[in-house]
Design a protein around this nucleic acid. Structure first.
Lengths: 176, 176
DNA sequence: ACCCACATGTAATGTGTTACATGATTTT
DNA sequence: AAAATCATGTAACACATTACATGTGGGT
């Protein structure tokens, strides 16, 4: 039930097309919620049928119409209602940890190489988040409230990557 | 494709029934891979058809036969092969962070309460992991290699919960 | 000439969740 | 007497992934 709400969140921010939404899910929002363009188009269809969003067709020369989606009043109420509900931690499915569980079945190097690869991935992502932090959120206390919320999602991303990075290093050290 | 391999990992450890597997997925392994009993039974059927596992029926008085699943040689090869493959970070879908994105649509208290609730949940889980750590992994360097791998999965759990806890506290502080 | 960005979709398959179903034994 | 644990499953539905499909305009 939550892709629907994630879309509402983004459309509340600004009316946009499925294509634009897909790009956002691929970028910033993608850290905590991923969705493919196929999922998004399907969900938009449902949202429209329920009248949580409505479409404004924008004619374009040569190309198919751009469908600009707006949140309706009903949609906004649904979103606010959802925001008030409790949300439990999301289930995790982390293949690398399953592999660690049986790590002794393969040569040590196989695991160490994989840990190194993952360490680099997380280090890179962490550096990326940190650069955003420096550029846009130099003084968190001084930010307007909406920006504080955005800042906090970024902070979670930073914590997440930093934790993975630290763990990879600890694991590599213990195993070598 | 990974529930199959997670099951193989557990069956390599010890032959067991679908019911027993479900309990493990609900407990220790459940931190990094969840699966319901229905998923497990379905997957076991597929694994048997592919001859990655085989069944030993254990007759029981009054109850239906207990089906004890063993990994076959083919299954073991498939598992080892999978262990050698790279695994990318798993996609995240964290509703609370989506909510944070639009936190300004509801009164501050709604968000603060939810953060408090989550903080308590993560603190509790962290305490649980730490107690396991103290009881079973007092001296990591001295552990045999299989136990070191298990220890590392626990360490990731600890890092994960600690990061959530710290983030909840940071968020509560910034927003109040 | 080829690839990338724009813009939207259908179809098929795979994975995950929820509800329902059965029936014995053990614990409260 | 009621509830929980043992033990296995079917069925329906919801959600996610992958492949395929179409067509324009701009850059290399």
């Amino acid at each position: 039930m939550s892709l629907a709400h994630a879309i509402l969140v983004l459309l509340t921010d600004s009316a946009q097309s499925g294509y634009d939404l897909a790009k956002q899910f691929d970028g910033s929002v993608g850290f905590f919620w991923q969705a493919s363009h196929q999922q998004i188009y399907r969900e938009l269809g449902k949202l429209e049928a329920q009248q949580w969003v409505e479409v404004e067709a924008i004619a374009q020369a040569g190309r198919p119409d751009k469908k600009l989606y707006h949140v309706t009043e009903l949609g906004k109420q649904q979103l606010i209602n959802w925001l008030g509900q409790a949300s439990d931690p999301s289930p995790t499915r982390e293949a690398l940890l399953v592999k660690m569980f049986s790590g002794n079945l393969v040569p040590r190097d196989v695991i160490l190489q994989e840990l190194e690869r993952r360490r680099d991935l997380h280090a890179k992502q962490l550096a990326f988040y940190r650069s955003i932090e420096e550029q846009h959120f130099a003084n968190p206390q001084a930010l307007p409230i909406e920006a504080q919320f955005r800042y906090l999602t970024l902070r979670k991303g930073i914590g997440y990557e930093a934790d993975w990075l630290a763990w990879c290093e600890e694991a590599m050290q213990l195993l070598s």
